[in-house]
């Protein structure tokens, strides 16, 4: 057998292994967003309003319950789904309705959407509805924003102040 051939073959193998690692651990660059684009993210987790109102239980109803469960009012736990719409420069770009989480549909509804836009100035309008009883949306926010390339605008909902936030 040709020892020299084998040794050079073996060296070549090590070199090929190293070259594969060196090249594909760096290259080619990944341009995950084109240079003149920006991103709008609609991201919130929000608890919709409860579907039903609390009702006062009559003494007769209370009597039927085990003693440890005799609360004076009864509140249904299920919450309304949360709907959101986004207009970008007057065009509807997102319409989504998120169901509350949890087995009894009493948790928060979550929305996460990533929308690529051209960098520059945009007029945005956000509408949100978290109440099954009212018609139309119960929160609105309009703004003109200027996005630099690669900038991210996050549209969120602030439950403490009951408003849609842009940051």
């Amino acid at each position: 057998m040709n020892r020299l051939g084998q040794w050079s073959g073996q060296l070549l193998l090590y070199a090929a292994f190293a070259a594969t690692l060196a090249v594909f651990s760096h290259w080619p660059n990944y341009q995950h967003l084109a240079p003149d684009r920006a991103v709008i993210k609609v991201s919130f987790t929000h608890q919709g309003q409860r579907l039903g109102d609390c009702t006062v239980q009559t003494p007769a109803e209370l009597a039927k319950l085990p003693p440890n469960m005799r609360a004076p009012t009864r509140c249904p736990r299920e919450r309304a789904p949360v709907s959101v719409e986004l207009d970008l420069d007057g065009v509807l770009v997102l319409r989504q309705t998120a169901l509350p989480s949890g087995l009894s549909r009493d948790g928060a509804a979550a929305v996460y959407q990533r929308i690529e836009v051209a960098a520059g100035q945009h007029r945005i309008a956000v509408r949100l509805k978290d109440d099954a009883h009212s018609v139309g949306f119960n929160y609105h926010r309009e703004a003109v924003v200027t996005l630099r390339p690669a900038e991210i605008l996050v549209i969120d909902f602030d439950p403490a102040h009951h408003q849609i936030t842009l940051q």
Partner: peptide
Amino acid sequence: DLARVPTALHYDWILLHLHP
């Protein structure tokens, strides 16, 4: 920097190919 989208990454295609 969470306020910006990372662009033109030196990318490890061997390990991170699932993301693209």
